[in-house]
């Protein structure tokens, strides 16, 4: 009698196959997770502690000075202790809809034409500036940060999580007022 003619044998083989496939899937996931965590160890430990992530902008020309990224926890600490000036690089409508309390608006378009803060805000060149926009996928904060550095501001950071992360963390936001 051939093996596939025996119903019980087929059932046993299918069960065994299923078990082997599940075991293989688990093994692949474990290996991938281990490799991924090992490869990105410093990034993950930094993110766990809420530290600024390493800058990864390979498109930047060599020698160009870039603003340093900064994480949510540092932004919150510097915001609360008023150690930094927060700059919102989004447009006026987004700013009016909601922004980090105490932030100054400086949209990228405006910064390209005329890099000046609103007259009410006095920002000395040695001030610590944190620029943000609409989260990780928004690059306006990095562009505004670069323009600020070119204009002579020495201590410029980019908060990559931006307004969405700040708002979702339940930290103070304000509306209106440009």
């Amino acid at each position: 009698m051939r093996a596939w003619e025996d119903g019980a044998t087929i059932d046993a083989m299918l069960k065994r196959d299923r078990f082997i496939t599940v075991a293989e899937i688990c093994l692949i996931i474990i290996i991938s997770a281990s490799a991924g965590v090992a490869w990105n160890w410093s990034l993950l430990t930094g993110a766990w502690r809420g530290e600024a992530t390493q800058q990864a902008q390979p498109s930047a020309p060599t020698g160009e000075e870039l603003p340093m990224p900064i994480g949510l926890m540092q932004v919150k600490e510097m915001h609360d202790s008023k150690q930094a000036v927060l700059v919102d690089a989004r447009n006026a409508a987004s700013f009016a809809e909601g922004h980090i309390t105490g932030a100054i608006i400086l949209p990228l378009d405006q910064a390209r034409k005329n890099l000046s803060f609103p007259s009410s805000a006095k920002v000395p060149k040695d001030a610590t500036i944190i620029v943000y926009c609409n989260g990780f996928s928004c690059h306006d904060s990095m562009e505004v940060g670069k323009l600020l550095m070119q204009a002579g501001y020495a201590s410029v950071y980019v908060y990559e999580g931006g307004f969405p992360e700040w708002r979702d963390a339940g930290y103070p936001v304000a509306t209106g007022g440009t």
Partner: peptide
């Protein structure tokens, strides 16, 4: 927040 980084670390290797 942290899970975004964990997913970004593991998913590409998978």
């Amino acid at each position: 927040y942290f899970a975004n980084y964990l997913a970004a670390a593991v998913l590409p290797f998978l």
